[in-house]
Nucleic acid binder design. Structure first.
Length: 529
RNA sequence: GCGCCCGUAGUUCAAUUGGAUAGAACGGUGGACUCCGGCUCCGCAGGUUGCGCGUUCGAAUCGCGCCGGGCGCGCCA
């Protein structure tokens, strides 16, 4: 084994950097069925800037490059420079241990889900949960210190409304007529909760409220754990109040002249930070809106010394971004300490119809009910197959029906198949070994597989850069596909012992890559299926 | 009305952030195994990237204007 680790495209970049130290070098993958493996568009940039012919610039650059890692350099219309990797270099890369350090110990706090303790977890939160969890796994794998955090809004008006709604249902249970308050909660679960509260003998508003908060906080924690999503830290809004952070933040905003009173309410001048209008932080009847404790909570996060804060929010919250970021800036921190990702909407389709989702009206699909129909592996894989910034339609009928031929099984099957081949080889008396002659690997399908495996760290780097794990999912499907194709064309365990061992080595690397990748997605990777 | 997101194959989505002949999966259709796991593989059909101008070597991607959908719009979260 060679120590250390490097990326192919980084090695190529370095070669070009030697020649062109002041250029921004971009290396990309050559489309399938074109000559070469990686390409650069460097010639276009230089030619445009210097008014030269791009094709000639490309040829000139290509003729200057000599490197052992490149077997062949070709120039393609209009001026792409394509690199074909040398086999020797690929063998060398393949035998290196996998290790990637992008974070270099930098700490990131990711807050996600943070569903209000006023009802069950719905599918939109489930999507955020999957994205956040996968991001955490990815960042840990690539050298970051991470904290997965869940924030519980247990001190705002919503929990009061829920408690009041429960109380009204209690009246009904006792034969009276209940009146769900305006903006109250109508879901069936409120009735269930009311029964429990009656059974517990709770009567006071505050007691009912605390019971509900505990009930949902525990339920959310459990549903998340069943889904494979575990949080490192649960933060409570009430605790932010206890620590006096809310008053502290209000004081700072006031002392900096960033507030004013109008119609009896206190406004925070978020327009100073690019918002389209100022936001109320204390209402005319002296209640705090969500924004004030939310800013206080973010001050709390910052003071816990993280290099970067990441929030994952649903699409209906995008209007809050300016307020929070403005608040952070008002407290004297740069906007860049926080990154707010908006995970787009999930539309559930059943029997060809969209299911409307409203928590207050009680018409939404919970994560638990979804998991009763579709396995966690399928749900996670399905969510992670889409870029999180895009809307996605989740066709329930299709997800259930497709579970036989879902891509998740396709990927898992590739891994199980490899493990089976390795078992078969061992039964035939051929063990996996590091002392092999990789030069025996030279078929096109084999080299494709090597290049796939070498791409893995590059995919992770892209995913970290974009803070979006979905590209890993696409890569996994590609990798599985290339393996299945290779399997169809070439026999691993055969007459030639040296060749068998070389191929075993290659497919074992492939299996390990699949396993590592699925782990990042939080999807299981069985040895047998 | 204002702000943000979006519009790509029958359907659901990609396109490495301005690069090559816009790619996959599912669905449709026609094939492949005496063989290490057929939950597999290969072929075919399917597109004026919502429409129109513009920017440049080059646009699904950037700008402007329309058309269509979603979300949000001071004292809910």
């Amino acid at each position: 084994m060679l120590p250390g680790w490097s990326m192919v495209r980084e090695d190529l970049r370095n070669i070009l950097r030697n020649q062109f130290p002041h250029e921004d070098i971009v290396i990309d993958y050559v489309p399938k069925d074109k000559e070469g493996d990686y390409y650069t568009n460097l010639a276009f940039k230089i030619a445009a800037r210097e008014g030269k012919n791009p094709r000639e610039v490309a040829s000139s650059i290509a003729s200057q490059i000599k490197s052992r890692i490149v077997k062949h350099i070709s120039v393609h219309e209009p001026a792409f420079i394509n690199f074909t990797l040398s086999e020797g270099y690929m063998y060398e890369q393949l035998s290196k241990d996998f290790e990637i350090d992008i974070g270099k110990g930098k700490s990131i706090l990711i807050e996600y889900v943070s569903a209000n303790p006023t009802g069950p977890i719905n599918v939109v939160s489930a999507r955020a949960a999957v994205v956040g969890d996968s991001l955490i796994r990815l960042l840990r794998k690539t050298g970051f210190q991470t904290c997965a955090e869940y924030y519980v809004n247990d001190a705002g008006r919503q929990t009061d409304l829920l408690a009041e709604s429960v109380y009204q249902r209690m009246i009904e249970i006792r034969g009276g007529t209940g009146h769900i308050p305006e903006h109250g909660y109508h879901g069936d679960y409120v009735k269930e909760l009311a029964k429990e509260v009656v059974a517990k003998g709770l009567e006071k508003h505050e007691d009912i409220k605390q019971y509900c908060i505990q009930y949902f906080a525990n339920q959310h924690r459990k549903v998340m754990e069943d889904f494979g999503v575990v949080f490192d830290q649960w933060s409570f809004e009430s605790n932010i109040y206890k620590k006096n952070y809310v008053d502290r933040v209000l004081g700072i905003l006031k002392s900096k002249g960033l507030t004013y009173t109008q119609d009896g309410a206190i406004f925070f001048k978020t327009t100073d930070f690019g918002d389209d209008k100022d936001r109320v932080i204390v209402t005319s009847d002296q209640r705090n809106t969500y924004l004030l404790p939310d800013i206080a909570y973010h001050l709390d996060k910052i003071e816990r010394k993280y290099d970067k804060l990441v929030n994952i929010w649903g699409p209906d919250h995008h209007g809050r971004i300016k307020g929070i970021v403005g608040g952070i800036q008002a407290l004297g921190y740069p906007a860049s300490v926080i990154k707010i990702l908006i995970v787009q909407e999930v539309k559930l389709k059943q029997s060809g119809e969209l299911i409307s989702m409203s928590k207050r009206a009680g018409t939404f699909t919970t994560l638990s009910s979804l998991l009763e129909k579709v396995s966690s592996d399928v749900v996670r894989f399905f969510f992670l197959m889409r870029s999180s910034s895009q809307h996605l339609d989740f066709d329930l009928d299709l997800a259930v029906k497709q579970s036989e031929e879902n891509p998740v099984y396709y990927v898992q099957y590739a891994h199980a198949r490899i493990k089976s081949i390795i078992r078969y080889a061992e039964e035939s008396g051929i063990e996996l070994s590091d002392r092999i002659d990789l030069a025996l690997i030279r078929e096109k399908e084999e080299l494709t597989l090597i290049k796939d495996v070498l791409k893995f760290p590059e995919i992770l780097e892209d995913a970290v850069h974009n803070l979006d794990p979905y590209m890993i999912t696409y890569y996994m499907i590609d990798l599985a596909k290339d393996f299945h194709y290779f399997y169809q064309k070439h026999r691993v365990v055969g007459e030639n012992r040296a060749l068998t061992q070389a191929r075993l080595y290659l497919i074992d690397k492939t299996a390990t890559t699949i396993k590592n990748g699925l782990e990042l997605l939080g999807v299981s990777c069985p040895e047998k299926m």
